[in-house]
């Protein structure tokens, strides 16, 4: 089941370093518990996998430079920002490129 893109539900920023450190920062409480992040190269889509197996597109387009950095990582930190911009419940998720 494909959920609405996360960026349609709340403000989301996707941050990638040249060394491959990746963070997904979102403002507001996500409606799902995520266990995994993957990149589907055919759909050109960063996808979050929920605990109950649903897929949610991030809803952001990454440029080539970001994609190259993304491919270096093995984990993504999900960081929720509260309304007053405090960090709440950061969580590390495994990352992989999706193999078709």
């Amino acid at each position: 089941m494909l959920l609405n893109p996360l960026s349609q539900d709340m403000p989301v920023e996707f941050v990638v370093s040249r060394t491959g450190s990746v963070a997904i920062v979102h403002k507001g409480r996500a409606q799902h518990d995520y266990i995994w992040v993957q990149y589907d190269q055919y759909a050109d889509s960063v996808q979050l996998v929920t605990e109950d197996g649903k897929l949610q597109d991030l809803g952001l387009s990454l440029n080539d430079s970001m994609l190259r950095s993304l491919m270096k990582t093995r984990e993504v930190m999900m960081i929720e920002l509260t309304d007053n911009m405090a960090i709440r419940k950061p969580k590390l998720l495994k990352f992989s490129a999706l193999v078709h």
Binding site: V12, E13, F14, V16, R18, S21, H26
Partner: peptide, 12 residues
């Protein structure tokens, strides 16, 4: 991630 990284989306 921020020292030499780049980002896309909202400027959170």
């Amino acid at each position: 991630a921020i020292v030499d990284g780049e980002s896309v989306g909202a400027d959170l």
